[in-house]
Design a protein around this nucleic acid. Structure first.
Lengths: 231, 231
DNA sequence: GTGTCTACTATAATCGATTATTTATCGAAT
DNA sequence: ATTCGATAAATAATCGATTATAGTAGACAC
């Protein structure tokens, strides 16, 4: 699946630069959940004008990472047990559905992409000490999951999926600083991929549901321990 | 269900004003699907500065009504058969799920709200000639559906739902200029409401699915006739 | 006649300064 | 001491002008 070289010169606009930077900082807990975003200070810190900064932040509001209140400013979306639970519930509702659609629409090319992404993922190790390897593993993991369901051919659904993944990744980054890769996770990915390309729909969906459930419940335990009750 | 007077002085910001105005114009086809949004002309036409205009448009991008391309400007999201189909599919995937959750969470207050919204809807007539009555019926219809699933207590899900409803309403406005209210629609709403508050979960979900399917397939036929194939 | 390069025009993106609103501070009256 | 009100400081929202980019038309060469 050769990348058609999206754009020769994407010429990222300043607002887009700021956006990815802010998104990264939020997703990695550098900007803490619940933290107020002071526009003036951010502007100065990033050496940028207010206009692109506002624009970037507005896009983050769209993706659910920032909340806005008129005339009061912007806040990094708080975290809560209720929110992790909702993210998990919606992933369980949407991802297996997307997978079923992808299994219908996908052809040989899709099967090949899935197996390729699986191979790459299974051969990308997560070294607890090394942040770079963690980032690499996460990229491979997200690429695998995205390839799996990408051929559902539903742009709105994919947008929702990306939003949920972003929120979920933030929880992972904050609470799962470093864990070695589990053998069982590899097995799960492999089983899902094979069931998918062999069009065992119910089985694939069930495996994916289980995979999401397991990877989430682990996270949930840590969060519940940290957030005693509603803040 | 008395409105708790959302805010004493919401003090809407200019960007918010523009946003609702643009949203209305898009939802009602005044700004046509696929139309390019010229910032300078819009700014002049609305007697407003560029900053709040950009902010408003960015929020519409977030809600899927406008698309943006860096350095190329903004476009009213095009319509297509594929898009109506996706909107319908996602509504069928999400709304019955939300309803099941609401049936678990809701108590007497919720039941009362549902029956109240149903009554109001069933007594709001849709007069083909009168735009005001159409708007009123639509508001009552949306209020009913929102009340029905509102107690799912999932903010993200509700945001997705609102997005889908907005897209769906646009198709309705553009293609269903005026139709008298059908007796069977009233019956469907009534059946859904009763099944819901009596906690007949499977039946309520099935009824809602059927309701969405029917109201959508009607629309779809008109759209297919109008859009021969992919534009 | 056709293709390509260049100057021009339209428009999107950005900046710096100004205005409007909220939040914090202080003082006085109860 | 506490609450209310007025003022001052902080910060969000907006404006007008400037800069950068993309699209277009025209000139030139072949």
């Amino acid at each position: 699946m050769a990348q058609p070289a999206a754009h020769p010169l994407p010429k990222r606009t300043r607002a887009e630069d700021i956006e990815v930077r802010l998104r990264h900082d939020i997703l990695h807990g550098i900007l803490k959940p619940g933290e107020k975003l002071n526009l003036d200070r951010l502007r100065e810190a990033m050496g940028i004008g207010l206009s692109p900064l506002r624009e970037a932040i507005n896009r983050l509001v769209a993706s659910g990472l920032v909340e806005s209140e008129a005339m009061k400013g912007y806040t990094v979306t708080p975290i809560s047990v209720a929110n992790v639970d909702e993210v998990a519930a919606l992933r369980i509702e949407l991802e297996p559905y997307a997978l079923r659609c992808a299994m219908k629409n996908g052809g040989l090319e899709w099967e090949a992409a899935v197996m390729g992404a699986l191979h790459r993922l299974n051969h990308t190790l997560r070294v607890p000490g090394d942040p770079a390897s963690l980032a690499q593993w996460e990229a491979a993991n997200n690429a695998f999951h995205e390839t799996l369901i990408g051929r559902c051919d539903m742009p709105l659904l994919m947008k929702m999926y990306h939003q949920l993944v972003a929120l979920n990744d933030r929880y992972r980054h904050i609470y799962l600083k470093a864990t070695p890769i589990q053998r069982e996770v590899i097995d799960e990915h492999t089983a899902i991929a094979h069931a998918a390309i062999e069009r065992r729909a119910d089985e694939a969906a069930a495996l994916l549901t289980g995979h999401i459930t397991r990877s989430t419940s682990n996270l949930r335990r840590l969060i519940v321990a940290d957030l005693p009750e509603a803040p």
